[in-house]
Nucleic acid binder design. Structure first.
Lengths: 151, 151
DNA sequence: ACCACATAAATTGCATGCAATTAAATTGCA
DNA sequence: TGCAATTTAATTGCATGCAATTTATGTGGT
């Protein structure tokens, strides 16, 4: 690549990621508004629908979020009666998150959201899978680098 | 795909994007700390290094950001003496953003950041280009959809 | 048992993002 | 010309993200 092009906005993978993530998230908003939740609350529920009764710590590992983000978010979802937060009797440092019946029930109403969102794009199922797998790989690499740097 | 897998977190392209964007952004932090700027300030400067003397509106189009985000961000950069904000005499509704000499000079110090970041990954230049182009296409599609929906 | 160290959440402070509203300026058209 | 509709920034309010610190709890070694 031309040296002078190295700093061009449209050549940056980081900016492509940053912009794409925000624009795709916006596609979810109309659907999530119907459920009365935000995008971050949605991915948190995705994680919990898959594996319930997890510590905040583990949820954070799964979502790449720390307690500074999760604590207020989980309190919000608790206020919506979608989950409960309780200290782990086995280890009082941990807080265990458990879906309520309402929280579990919301999964049915969310079931069709992914399809409805990606119908709006020209992506094929194969295209989605391929892109998703490339991103997952890069995410793990980037995360490993960040952690290594911190030592 | 299995029906029950439709809501699995690791099958979501949206989550792959969301997580990847944040993790890759974190790789920039150590480098940007040296320059005393944040990631959003960095991409704003990338846009301005490429095309200076633009209205806030156009900068927003370029970055997919609105004045609610840009106004405080540009005021911060103005406080750092990297740019100036002035009303357009031709159209007093617009605010024109202009880099200061210091703002322009910062480009030199930023020149090697993209390489240094992606050295930390296993991505090849071709892999970066390919991924970036897929994301750009999706970004434009998603943005178009959002705008259409708003009408 | 004691204590240094480690671990998990919560808290604090700051910087986004973005919807919604407001204020000022411009435009278009009757 | 006059004025309604439009356009651009700025403002407001709320929800993240995340670094850094604090608080509470657990662990390991002596």
């Amino acid at each position: 690549m031309d040296k002078s092009a190295l700093l061009e906005l449209d050549n940056q993978l980081c900016f492509a990621l940053y912009a794409c993530s925000r624009e795709v998230t916006k596609l979810y908003r109309p659907f999530l508004d119907e459920l009365g939740i935000t995008y971050t609350q949605y991915v948190t529920l995705l994680a919990l629908w898959e594996k319930d009764e997890v510590a905040v710590k583990e949820l954070g590992r799964r979502l790449y979020l720390d307690s500074g983000t999760l604590t207020p978010l989980l309190k919000k979802l608790e206020g919506l009666k979608l989950l409960r937060r309780e200290r782990d009797p086995q280890d009082e440092r941990s807080v265990i998150v458990r879906l309520t019946p309402e929280g579990r029930a919301l999964k049915e109403r969310a079931a069709e959201i992914p399809e409805r969102v990606f119908c709006q794009t020209s992506l094929t199922p194969e295209g989605i899978e391929s892109l998703r797998d490339q991103l997952r790989k890069l995410t793990v690499e980037a995360h490993t680098q960040s952690c290594d740097a911190g030592l």
